[in-house]
Nucleic acid binder design. Structure first.
Length: 610
RNA sequence: GUCCCCGUAGUUCAAUGGAUAGAACAAGAACCUUCUAAGUUCUGGAUCCAGGUUCGAUUCCUGGCGGGGGCACCA
């Protein structure tokens, strides 16, 4: 439609002898102004004004016929409107000049009847496009670390990543979801240290357990140390280990040696010689497994299914090798570490260590390894990485290094960061144990709904709770910090996830009562306000969200449409047996579909009953 | 010190350089013997400061002020 209007306008300009004017055709800010608007009169006027004020000898002759006539953009707009009106375009109902010189177009009802018909017949594909057809896209998100809490920051990454994945799928791409988990590193060592110190339990030698773990690490049962086991408490171990690490120099040394030991155990296939090593290996495997099982539960609750899990224990090795191979070329030795001097390539960047003086790969080297492993598993056209914005600057350095080593991969990598999740009281920190876990938040959301909504089932409360939390994350542009206010984020009224779900359930309820009654997009019987016009915009919204990788466009649009429908619902009886009932049912059905598909794009369930 | 991000109603968020800057929450007043009141309707309230570019700036540029993050072996 936009192209069509642009064509009409160009044609009109041509009749005035004007070409080469830049203008846009867009949706006006308010629906009341019309369906489309253009600023052509304002931009053309500027061109004319410049032409007459400068040294064009004869503007009249140059074909700029208004040079002496039009006093302002508004008059120019009126002249263009007159030309357009004379054409009697069948798909345009009304054209009028407005404001300082806009031209507003109101489209004919038939256009929206067609859209309505299309929406209903497309069903689950309503709103989808194929701009990314044939593209392979990998999206990495959530990235929790074993031995640490899965907190609301991970929840944010998950909500955003899942939604981006779906939005890109809706553009026709083949999407693989990836989760990258830090199962080695200092945080692990700190937790393992604390488990060994505080979680020791004496057991009878015969009751020694076994851990069967992720097969790439060990493909065999791993025997517990005889006569002893260790209690794992993910909530406490890391925080405790961290606290002692900072206070006590001996603990610090101990943790560092555990860190090294874990790396070397992994490198040598969990081969150990002494009792201490055995214990550490055991604690490591047990704790890792415990964390991963918990994560799995959370993913299920949230509706994410990952295609790939990557671990730092594998990327570290690959990354370290990559760095060493490029030593002297891209990386240089400095104070026993291998560093990348990014400022040589871009003065805004800084030097970062890729392999530390212990010979262990840092985050940056691991990330290089990860890119390589990802591409080997799934040769992507685009690799999207979603992280918190505290790593923004590292990521820039990393991308610069990647450009030197894997230029093709670097070109395919897009990094999006979400803001930090801040509590009204300040920053959350898992080092001090001051965190809100994803589980506790989701449970709290569910409880509030059960307490406040009469007769709600557990399943619905669960779905609405997840919706409330996810929506509160997706409603705003990613990248900015989110001030996490409990009341606001768990709200189930107004601008909220459950509000959308409720509206969807409402449409289902009406349609169910109508039975198998046919629907009809024939609007001959009246005007139902902005609803049909708003509905027609859904595909554009999805497209924009997809190209900008921004879910909040969808979220905001859904609120608009839900509000509009609820308003319609409140003022109009749908099932009244009148002649326009079929059309009202068509609207209801299309709204229901739009909400359902839109909620899917946000990764939020749409129950038929609430 | 330096680099990056951000500053919009009391609060949490919107607004491809455009029209009267939109919502929601919170406050007040209505509406369930009609399809789900997790709803609807009505009422007040905002662009950090100073310049600049532009027909037009919340948006772009410069300089302040304020907040957050990064700046070598944590992620």
């Amino acid at each position: 439609m936009r192209e069509k209007l642009e064509g009409y306008i160009k044609e009109a300009l041509k009749e005035f002898g004007i070409t080469g004017v830049d203008f846009v055709v867009e949706h006006p800010g308010e629906l009341a102004h019309g369906d489309w608007a253009t600023n052509v009169a304002m931009t053309a006027y500027r061109g004319l004004a410049k032409a007459t004020n400068s040294h064009v000898p004869n503007a009249e002759k140059a074909g700029i016929i208004w040079a002496g006539k039009a006093k302002n953009p508004r008059e120019l707009a009126e002249a263009i409107v007159a030309k357009l009106k004379a054409k009697n375009y069948p798909d345009i109902l009304k054209i009028e000049p407005a404001g300082p010189g806009f031209i507003n177009f109101k489209l004919a009802p038939a256009v929206f009847e067609d859209e309505l018909t299309a929406a209903i017949s497309k069903g689950e594909k309503w709103g989808w496009n194929d701009t990314l057809k044939g593209k392979k896209v990998m999206v990495e998100y959530t990235d929790p670390n074993p031995f640490k809490e899965f907190h609301i920051g991970h929840l944010m990454s998950n909500a955003i990543g899942e939604s981006i994945s779906r939005i890109i799928e809706a553009s026709g791409a083949e999407v693989k979801r990836a989760c990258y988990q830090g199962d080695v590193g200092l945080h692990v060592a700190k937790a393992v240290y604390d488990i060994r110190e505080s979680g020791r339990m004496v057991t009878s030698p015969s009751s020694a357990g076994k851990v069967k773990t992720i097969k790439f690490l060990v493909s065999y049962d791993f025997e517990a140390p005889k006569g002893v086991d260790f209690k794992v408490n993910v909530k406490k171990n890391y925080a405790e280990g961290s606290r002692k690490y900072e206070l006590d120099e001996d603990v610090k040394q101990k943790v560092l040696s555990i860190n090294k030991l874990v790396y070397s155990l992994l490198e040598n296939g969990l081969d150990y010689s002494g009792e201490e090593e055995h214990e550490i290996a055991w604690i490591y495997l047990k704790g890792r497994k415990r964390s991963l099982e918990l994560f799995k539960k959370i993913y299920k609750k949230l509706g994410t299914k990952f295609d790939y899990f990557f671990f730092e224990s594998e990327t570290g090795e690959v990354g370290k090798k990559v760095v060493q191979e490029n030593k002297g070329k891209v990386f240089e030795e400095s104070e026993d570490a291998l560093v990348f001097r990014a400022e040589k390539y871009n003065p805004k960047l800084h030097t970062r260590v890729f392999v530390n003086k212990e010979g262990l790969p840092t985050y940056e080297a691991k990330e290089l390894g990860l890119a390589k492993i990802k591409y080997e598993k799934f040769p992507y056209d685009v690799s999207i990485v979603i992280t918190g914005n505290e790593v923004n600057d590292y990521f820039q350095v990393l991308l610069e290094a990647m450009r030197q080593i894997f230029p093709d991969l670097a070109a395919k990598t897009e990094h999006y960061s979400h803001g930090m999740l801040r509590l009204p009281t300040g920053k959350m920190s898992s080092r001090t144990g001051d965190v809100i876990t994803a589980m506790s938040l989701l449970d709290e959301a569910k409880m509030r709904i059960i307490k406040n909504v009469e007769g709600v089932t557990k399943e619905v409360a669960e779905a609405a709770g997840v919706a409330a939390v996810k929506y509160s994350i997706l409603r705003q542009a990613a990248g900015r910090d989110i001030i996490f206010d409990f009341e606001q984020s768990l709200s189930f009224e107004g601008d909220s996830g459950p509000y959308l779900q409720y509206t969807h359930a409402r449409t289902c309820s009406v349609l169910e009562r109508a039975g198998d009654a046919a629907v009809s997009a024939d609007a001959a019987h009246g005007d139902f306000g902005p609803l049909p016009r708003l509905l027609a915009r859904f595909p554009e919204i999805v497209l924009r969200a997809s190209s900008e990788r921004e879910s909040h466009h969808v979220a905001n649009y859904l609120i608009d449409i839900a509000r509009e429908f609820n308003s319609f619902y409140g003022s109009t009886q749908i099932l009244d047996g009148a002649s326009d009932q079929l059309y009202k049912l068509a609207l209801t059905k299309a709204v229901g579909l739009t909400l359902k598909n839109g909620l899917w794009l946000l990764g939020i369930a749409a129950p038929a009953k609430m």
